[in-house]
Design a protein around this nucleic acid. Sequence first.
RNA 1: GCGGGGGUUGCCGAGCCAGGAAAAGGCGCAGGGCUUAAGACCCUGUCCCGUAGGGGUCCGCGGGUUCAAAUCCCGCCCCCCGCACCA
Length: 943
Amino acid sequence: MINFLFTFSTLIHMDFREIEEKWQKRWEESGIFQADPDNREKFFITIPYPYLNGNLHAGHTRTFTIGDAVARYKRMLGYNVLFPMGFHVTGTPIIGLAELIQKRDERTIRVYTQYHNVPEDVLLTLTTPERIVEYFSKEAERAMRMIGYSIDWRRKFTTMDECYQKFIEWQYWRLKEKGLIVKGSHPVRFCPNDNNPVEDHDLLMGEEATIVEYTVIKFKSEDGVIFPCATLRPETVFGVTNIWLKPTKYVLAKVNGEMWIVSFEAFEKLKYFDKKVEKLGEIDAKEYFGRFVENPVTKEKVPILPAEFVDTDNATGVVMSVPAHAPYDYVALKQLAKDEETLKKYGIDRKLVESLKPIVLIKIEDEDYEVPANEIVEVMGISDQKDEALEKATKIIYKKEYHKGVMLENTFFPNIPVAEAKDKVHDYLIKNNLGDVFYEFSEKPVVCRCGTKCVVKVVKDQWFINYSNEEWKRKVLEHLERMTIIPDYYKKEFRNKIEWLKDKACARRKGLGTRIPWDKEWLIESLSDSTIYMSYYVIAKFVNSGKLKPENLVPEFFDYVFLSKGSVEEVAKKSGLSKEVIEEVKREFEYWYPVDLRSSGKDLVANHLLFFLFHHVALFPEKYWPKAIAVNGYVSLEGQKMSKSKGPLLTMKKAVEEFGADVTRLYILHAAEYDSDADWRRKDVEGLANNLRRFYEIVKENYFKEPKEVTTLDKWLISRMQKAIKETRDAMEKLQTRRAVNAAFFELMNDVRWYLRRGGRNLVLILDDWIKLLAPFAPHICEELWSLKHDSFVSLERYPEYDESKVDEKAEVAENYIRTLLRDISEIMKFVKDAKEVYIAVAEDWKREVAKIAKQTGNMKEAMKVIMSDERFKDLKKEIPSFVKRLFKEGFDFYEIDERKVISEAIEFFEKELRVKVYLDESKVPEEKRKAAMPGKPAIYVV
RNA sequence: GCGGGGGUUGCCGAGCCAGGAAAAGGCGCAGGGCUUAAGACCCUGUCCCGUAGGGGUCCGCGGGUUCAAAUCCCGCCCCCCGCACCA
């Protein structure tokens, strides 16, 4: 009794954490996850290192746990598995965070204490980037140990380490030598007050705004003044009838030596565009109304006219008018012709305005209208240029013409689709200095966190990585085809993104990181310093053990280790290392490389994972290019998006403390598959904890029972186990952790429930396999259970093999038979009051003919045709489809089981379940019921 | 707009590629068992109808192919994600 009570209470209060900590300690002490080269086949799996501006959260937990499950699974398959981890600290957010903490920013303090669970007194000391890195790297490592990842911790590093920086410098020198680093300029969102580019999270307003590139077309007046018309539709330049200015003041400016007339706002913006800009004076637009300018493309002279709809805060504030295709222009022109007052005010001849006829220059196949702008304006009933509906009208026309339109004969590009002509005109303008570009936000306003309105700034002379390089892209694309991408449809996505990738600025002024070795004013930007660092895990082991020092890491050393360039003697001399050490590092690199699997969140597809591919292809020999990439989705909390900087957030540590490592792991692995998003729901997590506890109890209760004689039921259980092994393995090969956990845990659990309900007493027969099967997912509890009987680590055991000889289809069919029969009987008993006895009659033998026919034809379609047309079966047309379906689903053994025998052996079970007497007795079952019986579906009679 | 993914039973989510079960599993809810009780655990039910294992309706909407469609084909509607220099 005392013993019972004790057991009982330990079960109730079974503390996952206690078990987990015990095994984490043992793993650590035994060093079983430290991977060094040996004669086994290797498997090198990496996960993107976390960025340390906060604690690891449920999102990390998902990606990392998938990685760990795969690592453990592969290890149990016999691979020598390397699963390392480092920390990313490059860039600005950590600095930003330090500043916020220093300033005691209220929101930051709240978010970091409440969601990141940093104690306030500790948080307030994190006022420098160094302290932040120090603190969060320790926390991250602790969290990852708490959840039981099988990481080789001897290889950890941060991207600020001196040795890492040597490695990055080497990489950039080599890229530069290959001509893949180029200089250029590009537009960025910029805060004039902070004097810095702004990132999304630095914005108060306008996070959605993108930078739009307007084409500027230089219309010139006789006195040489340029009216820079900004447009998104340069192809319509062939249809310009006039240009518009708002009747207000403009600026006369000298722009790169030319005289430009632009709005005041535009002038301010121009200052940031990497141009020489000088204000010469102010002019009033009215001085120009009625005067003419020359269309630089058609050489036509067109008048300058006033229009109220012109927005001086959009682009240059000078607009060209294409009334045939632009509803605004059409309406404004019509309106002006009628507006006596305005015409008089500016001394414009009405005849002039009336003479301006729309010039149609685009046609749309299958549609036949004269002047598109006219038609839409009439349909929508717009007559005022300030009508907001014009915006919509413009969009409709634009959309149609862009996608379906073709240029007409009166343009330079007859019969060319509009989408193409647009670029051609743009290029023509730029090439001949007849045009320019003007950057503008797609939405306004865009406001920095400091309250200042942002501008677009063109950063000049910046270093770029030349991803647009065709040769480079081609190689990456070719390699992509050879790679495994999981899930497979992401290969298409990668293909598109590789083609779309443009040159990328790789340098920044501010932040943590490595300086560009040949231009020390610039720092290498954070996504650009994390492309090939998987190779650095090899180096890091030697750095951490003290064998490699920063001064040893000369470029020639990396050349030799990674690329086999140069001679060991030379490298020894240059690096100050012994030949042995150099060779040892090289051997280790050559053993581990390439990366066999990089498993990552889907947010990195369009950036990091691309760069990862590009840089490997550029720098390493082909045999070291990555083998596979897997992508997983996000995690939300009770349906809410997580946010590092705003909350809500669930840290990895908190999840483990609260629910335990195995529960957290199992839950996150099971919550969603592949790139679909998972939702962390407390209720579900608790439910899972119960299931896991139940597993623990069941194993403990049965593990030491002496095996008894093996029954059909036992064979069924063993067979089910084989199916589960097969399913789990197959799922894991495809990285389907949800399916794997479903098969290895939930479905087996259901089978075990049935087995126990059926009175099974030999559960012990499958327990070793079950524990091993679950070990990659819930390693702690599995170690604990395994250790009850064995002296080894289950983590190092061989994963269960699927053994077809143990599959017993007949036993499975028999159990299904019993299950179905039980269900049918109880279904009927619902309708019989005070049922006392149940009689069962199996179908007559001749009905097995159906199965024979089905087997002969081999497919459902054929079988149904043949059987249904058979006279003998015409009374059974209701029963046959489901029978045939079962045949094809459960296999043809189905009709070969001895139903009478199966039923006889289960009578006792039926009686226990149903609490009535059950007889297998044909004579007691009425004729009409017996007639409807089919093989597998006996007649039932309840009295 | 371009590109990728998706709309399934109260919810989450399998199934769809290889057409043949009101459609796995989990959660929730209801009833029963166990228990002094609660929790846990074990059964049963959970679209509608039904005093015999049955019938009806169902997988975003509308058509089509087929003996048979959640699954294949066509059209439409809606939702999510990426479009960068930011980790």
